[in-house]
Design a protein around this nucleic acid. Structure first.
Lengths: 127, 127
DNA sequence: CAGCATCCATCAAGATACTG
DNA sequence: CAGTATCTTGATGGATGCTG
């Protein structure tokens, strides 16, 4: 019977906290890289050219802490570390793809909305 | 024929840019407030107690620019402004709910993963 | 009521240098 | 190779005061 507005988008603090940790810029890019095959640290750096080593380390630690990726020490001397996605991490994929699909479907409309906004609201007070 | 790993989570710069604008902390909370009924500026402030007026203004402008909400001047003197979600904004709802559902389903596992990480990795070097 | 302008604190993040 | 440590800076975000 309730077909419109079924669930009210419940957004608790833990929810938000979690999304902040796994949906941020670098996290999504890292997950995107790892979703098909495991990668080494510097492979990830090369695959994501704009990430600094510090940010990449931080991101990997956070994703590992949340259980969506795993860190494996392959060998020491020379040190080799491999990161791979966990089953929990894999389960994120479908919802993320939904959002990306939404973004793809509506990119055109959004660009139009932006252009309209920039032409009607912004030019008034210059800049 | 390709049933496993169908799409490689394509994440272009425009995609990321867009998600940064509509999936950030306050945006999700605002969209969550607006998804059922329009709201006035101060209604939103009261509904989201932690947001500063500055951040709320910025968030509303950005959402308006991206075409997911609309700003309506109801009356001047006293000024009354109402914000409401657009059809484009409504179309975001389902993908967002997918992610929130994922978060809800896996919150337990994630908390376990965090506890495990904090007990095995962190205590070694204190802090 | 619904903002804008300003100042200020905090914090994420880049650059750089060093290590097991 | 895979990081850690340190320094510095740029962007965010809050607090405050003012306005049509």
């Amino acid at each position: 019977m309730p077909e419109t507005t079924p669930s009210p988008l419940t957004l608790s603090t833990p929810h938000r906290e979690l999304l902040d940790q796994v949906l941020d810029k670098w996290s999504l890019l890292v997950m995107s890289e790892l979703c098909d095959s495991p990668r080494r640290f510097n492979e990830l750096r090369r695959a994501i050219p704009d990430v600094s080593q510090k940010s990449l380390t931080t991101t990997l630690r956070r994703l590992e802490r949340n259980g969506v990726i795993e860190r494996h020490l392959l060998s020491s001397r020379p040190v080799a570390v491999q990161y791979q996605i966990t089953p929990l991490g894999k389960s994120m994929r479908s919802p993320i793809e939904e959002i990306l699909a939404w973004a793809t479907r509506n990119m055109e409309r959004i660009n139009q909305a932006r252009a309209r906004f920039d032409n009607t609201v912004l030019p008034s007070h210059s800049e």
